[in-house]
């Protein structure tokens, strides 16, 4: 099927089989390999991207379902001038990643939530962190990172690194 994926504001005209899941279309057809596949059953969340602003498992959506719908991936998280997103800074500052494989999923999950409501409370942040799997960090640094990013986002300030 001929479709056009609109990813991070760029158009990708594709000819895909209907069975092709969004994650594979993003990775192999659009060359956006920042989205990772960790389980292909919707559990781990490494493949989480924003479809029409909503954080979804891109292994549980078909590419053909996303024809013409705006998609955002980790490659589109930084600002237009390459300025890192507060989440990207916060993940580094709080050591919210080690091997980095699950990281894009957590970033996009949190980015979607921050877009909806920049005033994320502790319970909302916990709910987000509970949604994905990480095998390296033990999650607490990820919780701190999202909380920090929400704070920086609200303050609208450049996230300055502090000692952990």
């Amino acid at each position: 099927m001929k479709i056009t994926l609109t990813v991070n504001d760029a158009a990708y005209p594709l000819d895909v089989e209907p069975r092709r899941v969004l994650a594979d279309a993003l990775r192999d057809d659009c060359g956006l390999t920042g989205t990772h596949l960790g389980c292909e059953q919707g559990v781990c969340g490494a493949c989480t991207v924003l479809v029409d602003g909503e954080a979804v498992r891109s292994c549980l959506m078909l590419a053909v379902q996303c024809d013409g719908v705006p998609i955002r991936t980790v490659e589109g998280l930084a600002g237009p001038g390459g300025e890192p997103h507060p989440l990207q800074r916060a993940f580094s500052a709080e050591r919210g990643l080690q091997c980095g494989f699950c990281t894009p999923g957590f970033l996009m999950l949190a980015a979607g939530a921050l877009d909806h409501d920049p005033r994320l409370g502790d319970e909302e942040v916990a709910d987000l962190v509970r949604s994905n799997l990480c095998r390296c960090t033990g999650y607490e640094p990820i919780r701190r990172a999202i909380t920090r990013a929400a704070r920086d986002h609200q303050n609208g300030q450049e996230g300055r690194h502090r000692s952990v």
Partner: peptide
């Protein structure tokens, strides 16, 4: 039920 990204779809 599952978690927010699953509940969104």
């Amino acid at each position: 039920i599952a978690h927010p990204p699953i509940r969104a779809r």
